[in-house]
Design a protein around this nucleic acid. Structure first.
Length: 286
DNA sequence: CGGATTTGACCGGCGC
DNA sequence: GCGCCGGTCAAATCCG
């Protein structure tokens, strides 16, 4: 979280008015350079998202074709198998989200073998959350307020499964189930059902930012920009992510990186001081 | 004291 | 029809 704390204190050195014009130019150049870099990064990001979406569509088409060829009897047999697969997803490299489209794994063969319609109900998807090994908590911080309404020990997993409802219920129908992974008890498996019909509260935005950072740090596998969003706030599918949250996060990141750059702050401080002195001297001439 | 959590009871779906 | 099992309810309890 520290990296998102913007240091707004600038070293305003007003003792060198003679270099103001020169540093003005430097600052303009710097701003121009940053603008170009920002554009370039934006384009790269949008390209990545487009490519990812295109690949996901192709994968879904393959999955659908495969699903249609299965007989009813076979699918019944595979129901148990797919549940086993779900219990094993923690061991498959690159997975941290499993949704109803079966689209978030790098293991293509396992994808094709898995009947997509039986993995979970529509609009239900799974999120993996790494926890401390000693932690017995079944609480997943995902940016929303949840109310626990039940806990159950299931047959296939000795660790209890906790049932949560969105605290905005009944107006918000979203539910989630949280259970430790059978394969790796340090991983919590959160299964979300439905979509929130409300946004995050104000106080939660900072948490979203910190969790996005956490994703970059590497505590979880991140295989796509979309997954980052699902990992950080599972209700926030890329299609319905509140853009203000993303923008705020990006602005924070940019502000942090800029203020951490001593060249930029020095140039900015000189420029501002130069403007102030120009302004005051112009006033004096009035 | 009010909201959140816990936990045993209950219900409904499904397989045999 | 019966039993198993996952999901939900609701009274009791906890906690700030």
């Amino acid at each position: 979280m520290e990296s998102t704390c913007v240091d707004t204190s600038l070293n305003l050195n007003i003792n060198h008015p003679s270099t103001a014009t020169y540093k003005d130019e430097i600052m303009v150049e710097e701003l121009h350079r940053l603008n170009c870099e920002n554009k370039r990064l934006s384009e790269t990001l949008s390209n990545m998202c487009e490519n990812y979406e295109a690949m996901q569509k192709q994968l879904n088409q393959l999955m659908n074709q495969n699903c249609e060829t299965q007989t009813h009897e076979e699918s019944r047999k595979r129901k148990a198998e797919s549940e086993d697969c779900n219990n094993m997803f923690g061991t498959i490299k690159g997975i941290n989200v499993i949704n109803n489209e079966c689209s978030t794994t790098t293991d293509e063969e396992s994808l094709i073998k898995r009947p997509c319609r039986e993995i979970s109900s529509p609009k239900a998807y799974k999120v993996l959350v790494k926890t401390e090994a000693s932690s017995n908590s079944l609480y997943v911080m995902d940016g929303y307020q949840w109310r626990k309404y039940g806990q159950k020990v299931t047959r296939d997993n000795p660790s209890p499964r906790a049932y949560f409802r969105c605290s905005n219920a009944p107006s918000c129908p979203v539910k989630k189930k949280v259970q430790k992974s059978l394969e790796d008890p340090t991983i919590l498996v959160a299964t979300y059902e439905g979509e929130h019909n409300h946004g995050h509260e104000k106080a939660e935005i900072s948490m979203i930012s910190s969790q996005i950072e956490e994703s970059f740090i590497g505590s979880v596998h991140v295989t796509s920009p979309k997954q980052i969003m699902q990992r950080t706030s599972p209700s926030m599918k890329i299609d319905n992510v509140p853009k203000s949250s993303i923008q705020q996060f990006l602005v924070q990141q940019m502000a942090t990186s800029l203020t951490n750059d001593p060249n930029f702050t020095a140039a900015l401080a000189s420029a501002i001081s130069g403007r102030i002195l120009d302004h005051t001297s112009n006033k004096a001439n009035w």
